[in-house]
């Protein structure tokens, strides 16, 4: 696995060599601001243009998880005046663009169209006004499947009346997703058992409380354990998923980390490369289609990857229905 920076270098070099000199004008220039280096989503973004044989000039900057570098990059962008700015990740996007209704022209990027990639809840995080109408020349993609789609995916595997959802109460994204799920379940006549992870004295959630939470879930009669996109839970995914198996609880998540890289049962995930390609599709509409980013809705993929871990299924005795095996990705 080569270092992100070298991949980024190769990416730009490769594209630069591949791009033929256009008789009319130069290829569009895209400033890519990354949060934690070049990864598959950026691969998907770049490869889209290569597959469409559309030459682009990619300029890559990586903040390497240090948000203090953002203002300097914003100034650089103002000077460079690229045709488009690409932003990776929720935190970075919020830092660079600011809220849509409290935009500070000095600190935040303005006047240049932007697309964001791998972002959760752009509306709740006030990056855009609404998915259908961003309210500013910014658009992008969400990589988490809509909660309603996730609920349908769970039901497609096995119908339920009660779901338990552990989450880190300190993570707003996570809490919001769980809240939304609760509403959707209530509308279906099902129940959601919320299980916030207890917070220790030092203000951090307590991983040792996880087994007790799961026992509580089982005692409460939960038929599924739903794992929201939650960094804390991700960090302790091995413990979480293995305990769930021990308690006989099928787990469902919206991130492939819990299924492919832990022992979760199922998940409806977006491939980062596909999301990156989708973002590039929106970028193409802006660059060659001449559309205003504010007129392009923020969307998720229409088709997700349904991942099922067959070993967990065997251990739990919860095999997926045949119809699901047609589209599912056994892991």
């Amino acid at each position: 696995m080569m270092p992100a920076s070298r991949r980024a270098l190769l990416a730009t070099a490769g594209l630069g060599l591949a791009a033929p000199a256009l008789a009319t004008g130069r290829p569009p220039r895209i400033l890519m601001i990354l949060f934690r280096g070049w990864e598959e989503a950026c691969d998907g973004f770049r490869d889209y243009f290569a597959a469409r044989r559309m030459p682009v000039d990619l300029v890559v900057r990586d903040v390497a998880q240090d948000l203090s570098r953002v203002p300097a990059l914003v100034r650089e962008a103002r000077t460079m005046r690229p045709d488009l700015v690409y932003l990776w990740g929720t935190t970075l996007t919020m830092a660079v663009l600011g809220p849509w209704d409290a935009h500070d022209p000095d600190r935040h990027l303005s006047g240049i169209p932007a697309v964001f990639n791998i972002v959760t809840d752009p509306v709740g995080n006030r990056i855009v006004r609404s998915r259908a109408a961003p309210g500013r020349p910014v658009t992008g993609t969400e990589y988490i499947a809509p909660v309603a789609v996730q609920v349908e995916a769970i039901a497609a595997y096995r119908p339920f009346r009660r779901i338990a959802a552990p989450f880190n109460p300190l993570e707003q994204n996570s809490a919001r997703v769980v809240e939304e799920m609760g509403q959707l379940l209530a509308a279906r006549g099902a129940a959601l058992q919320k299980l916030p992870v207890p917070v220790r004295a030092d203000g951090r959630p307590d991983p040792s409380a996880i087994p007790a939470l799961l026992r509580e879930a089982r005692a409460g009669g939960a038929e599924w354990l739903y794992i929201p996109p939650d960094t804390f839970l991700n960090d302790h995914r091995a413990l979480l998923t293995q305990t769930a198996i021990a308690e006989g609880l099928p787990t469902f998540s919206a991130s492939e980390r819990f299924v492919a890289f832990a022992d979760g049962l199922a998940g409806l995930v977006s491939r980062y490369t596909s999301v990156g390609a989708f973002t590039a599709f929106k970028a193409e509409q802006i660059l060659t289609g001449g559309r205003d980013p504010g007129s392009i809705p923020v969307e998720t993929l229409t088709r997700f990857s349904y991942q099922i871990r067959m070993e967990t299924a065997r251990l739990l005795g919860a095999y997926p229905p045949v119809g699901l095996l047609r589209i599912a990705e056994p892991v």
């Binding site: 598959e40 998907g44 490869d47 889209y48 597959a51 491939r271 980062y272 490369t273 596909s274 390609a277 088709r303 997700f304 990857s305 589209i327 990705e329």
Partner: peptide
């Protein structure tokens, strides 16, 4: 082919 694309690669 669509399942293949779903894995995250482009069609080629």
């Amino acid at each position: 082919f669509e399942r293949g694309i779903n894995l995250g690669v482009r069609l080629p």
